[in-house]
Nucleic acid binder design. Structure first.
Length: 361
DNA sequence: TAGATTTGACCACT
DNA sequence: AGTGGTCAAATCTA
């Protein structure tokens, strides 16, 4: 906390995050029923803009010039922590027409860590996109092979998005997923539905998909974000965090995370990061939070889903802003609880949808 | 039969 | 030379 406060850039970010918090509060109010979807959309858009700015500040080194490796990577010694992996730079992958790549040129790339509640038998492959596996390789120093996937529509639509999926050494239920490139393909299944204009249909479906992602019982972590210095102190640091893994909120189980001083700050923060990162790569964002939804889906109806999803989105933002601004895990958690208590009273109309595409896109 | 997966080989990069 | 990413033939599956 103090290290951030002592940082001029940190103050700026805090200011921005405070702004976000205020916007989220407004959004909460409108979600209560009085606000129009358009207004909610506008607010979400604003939240996104400010969030992106904040992330930009963080990335540009306003906090700490040293890029810290992911906690899990350090703890587990995986993710090529021992070698200069491509994961460690945010440069990107080229996709040459020929076989090889490996140059450090453009293209988006994100690494996320997903915990599949489905266990080792259920790799987090359902992220809203169709992937085709084109290779698998044993990676030096890793216990599990890395799978290589490309967008199914690569040939038909020239979509060059790819991803790599690899189980972490320490926990086979946790996967590191690295996305390369952006999806330029259109979701046929989505676009075909309801005879609506493709854009609108796709938009809602995509937004819903993202909401599912957010509430699917896992949390994602974006590799490449510099961890706020304060989080690395006092035992609650980035390095101390375990891979993000939440029990599904829609499964009816109350998250026991309140007792965990690390869980509150880590989860929402990473969700925020995911959202922000999505901004950088709209298409890829669809894939940001990958996981198996079947278990959660089996346990609840659509209404329950939306309720939980909306809470997740809003609470993630609130928690993220609060946590980051204060760097006090416990108070932050309390705050989230307080904010959520208001949301808990809401009854969401199953037919009510909020277009938050602009928030993620 | 079309599409997806597996797997050995090729090749670029460090 | 070692390693990682991709290709493409063989195989599998719905």
């Amino acid at each position: 906390m103090e290290s951030m406060e002592g940082n001029g850039g940190g103050r700026l970010v805090v200011t921005e995050l405070s702004h976000i918090k205020e916007l989220v509060r407004q959004l909460e109010g409108h979600l209560g029923g009085s606000g129009s979807p358009d207004l909610c959309k506008h607010l979400a858009s604003q939240i996104f803009s400010v969030t992106e700015r904040s992330i930009g500040m963080i990335r540009s080194g306003h906090f700490d010039g040293h890029r810290k490796r992911s906690a899990a990577a350090v703890a587990a010694g995986d993710l090529d922590s021992a070698t200069p992996s491509p994961l460690s730079d945010v440069s990107d992958l080229p996709f040459k027409a020929t076989k090889k790549r490996k140059t450090s040129t453009e293209k988006k790339r994100h690494q996320i860590r997903v915990s599949s509640t489905g266990g080792v038998e259920n790799p987090p492959v359902d992220d809203g996109h169709s992937w085709r596996k084109y290779g698998q390789k044993e990676i030096l120093g890793a216990k599990h092979p890395r799978g290589y996937y490309r967008c199914t529509h690569r040939n038909s639509q020239g979509c060059m998005a790819t991803k790599q999926v690899q189980r972490t050494d320490e926990d086979a239920t946790v996967f590191d997923v690295i996305y390369h490139g952006e999806h330029t393909c259109v979701h046929k299944a989505v676009a075909a539905g309801a005879g609506k204009p493709e854009t609108e249909t796709d938009t809602n479906a995509a937004a819903e998909s993202r909401l599912h992602d957010l509430s699917s019982g896992l949390t994602v972590k974006i590799e490449g974000l510099t961890a706020p210095p304060q989080q690395q102190q006092g035992g609650g640091g980035w390095n101390a965090m375990p891979p993000f893994c939440l029990s599904s909120p829609v499964s009816g189980l109350a998250p026991p995370d309140q007792h965990n001083p690390f869980s509150a700050p880590s989860t929402p923060e990473n969700r925020l990061a995911a959202a922000a990162s999505s901004a950088a790569s709209p298409a890829t964002s669809d894939s940001m939070a990958a996981a198996s939804f079947h278990q959660a889906a089996a346990g609840g109806g659509d209404a329950a889903w939306r309720d939980a999803e909306l809470q997740e989105v809003v609470s993630a933002l609130v928690a993220a802003t609060t946590t980051t601004a204060t760097a006090q895990p416990a108070p932050a958690t309390a705050m989230v609880d307080a904010d959520l208590s208001a949301l808990d009273a809401f009854e969401f109309d199953p037919g009510f949808t909020i277009d938050i595409t602009s928030f993620f896109a």
